[in-house]
């Protein structure tokens, strides 16, 4: 009989436990940034889970958007991404980014961005990568930068959505 009491207790705990449990989710996005030596511009590719991006856009006021196929996708995705992924130079002046497009499948998409600066890029920049963070508090964004000498990787989370990155040795 004692066993059944133990099992009943365990099932009780299980119910309590599972009220915290959600389906297994992994809140991470990984992107790449490189400095094109020919054009001297930054080129960025961000890989984001498609359903996460669509959820964030829904929260931003665009419910039911199919980011891969809808005509209005480019407009909404670029607005959202450029709002949450930003770069500033050492003086705090924003370096404008341009949305190039998106490709991918139902699992994940790549969003492509680039800079179009005329006067050369600074040695060091501030990067804010807060994509999806307003929708998922545990979101982690990784950005790999292919520095000509030392490739570095930055990790952004809700506590530190902005990081300093050394672009090049002048």
């Amino acid at each position: 009989m004692k066993q059944w009491k133990t099992i009943a207790l365990a099932l009780g705990c299980a119910t309590l436990f599972s009220s915290f449990t959600a389906k297994h989710e992994y809140y991470v996005s990984v992107g790449e940034m490189s400095l094109n030596p020919t054009t001297n511009q930054l080129e960025i590719g961000l890989r984001i889970f498609t359903d996460d991006l669509e959820y964030a856009l829904e929260r931003a006021g665009h419910p039911g958007l199919d980011v891969l196929n809808d005509e209005t996708s480019a407009e909404h995705v670029s607005e959202y991404v450029l709002d949450h992924f930003r770069i500033w130079n050492e003086d705090g002046r924003e370096i404008k980014l341009f949305y190039l497009g998106l490709e991918g499948d139902a699992d994940g998409v790549f969003v492509y961005l680039e800079t179009k600066v005329k006067s050369g890029l600074p040695e060091e920049v501030q990067v804010r990568h807060a994509i999806l963070m307003e929708s998922f508090p545990d979101q982690i964004n990784i950005l790999h930068y292919s520095h000509p000498d030392i490739p570095t990787s930055l990790r952004f989370d809700a506590e530190e959505p902005t990081q300093t990155l050394e672009l090049q040795d002048l």
């Binding site: 133990t6 099932l11 599972s18 449990t21």
Partner: peptide
């Protein structure tokens, strides 16, 4: 073992 397996089976069932 019975206690933890019970919890585990319970949560697994709900999942």
């Amino acid at each position: 073992n019975l206690f933890s397996s019970g919890i585990v089976c319970g949560v697994a069932g709900l999942l």
